[in-house]
Amino acid sequence: MSTQTRTGTQGWSLDEWFVVALARTVADGEVVFHGFASPCAQVAMHVARRTHAPGSMLVEGATYAVNPEPAFVPPTSNDLALHRDAVYRMRFEEFFDAACRGAVDRMFLSGGQIDAYGNTNVTAIGGMPLPKIKLGGGGGGANISATIGALTVWTTRHGSGRTLVEAVDFLTDLGHRTPAGTRAELGHTGGGPQWLVTELGVLDYTADGRARLVATFPDVTVAEVEKATGFALTVADEVGTVAEPTPAELAAVRAVDPLGVRRLEFGPADLARHFGPAA
């Protein structure tokens, strides 16, 4: 695994900026959680706590540790490196009970497919029972995507044109509206997707629950985002540029993730994207 980012001291890479954009979706004072197989979200939660959201409570992915100070982020989510020095580790039951009763404010979710309402598929491309590609599976998402306060959805594969789709082949985790009804109609207590962060830009959700483009990275046009999106994209009246990372944010990314585990989520072309004065 590469231990180096390709940035000089003045610049930053897309993977770093992406993690910062994810981190900014955490509000100070929130209780936040990520699932396994989520390096970018994992790093982002620590960056948030070390920068603008010091009062947030972080529950570490597959270890359920509260506010740990990882030695480094390893490439597997259930590892002592992630929860060393935590004062407290929730039990599996304790975390999921809290999430089900509404005590957790935010969760990060990704997916092989994501639709306009933020429903995600982490089960199977081509659907079940005979998938074209069997993905790993959704962990606890099918339960707690229904109950957690707000969701930050992310993907690093928007540009593939195959990730943001009109309809998911299999609905693993809940967005704002499913073919069976809205969250309210289904009796679900959580607020659903609030942000969708991709390697092309940042989207929020409209009152009717559809993703809306609000900002792009500076090397990406709105037309490119529309072309990569498989559903009719709602675009904000004014689309901005994702705010540049601050030195403190970049320093936090680099300190939390010295092995560059976040980079495992990106393709080669995106890993080569570089910004800032040294570009």
Partner: peptide, 13 residues
């Protein structure tokens, strides 16, 4: 009883 699941495709399995 358990929270969630309704509206997802997991019950089809």
């Amino acid at each position: 009883p358990v929270r969630g699941l309704l509206g997802t495709d997991l019950p089809t399995l």
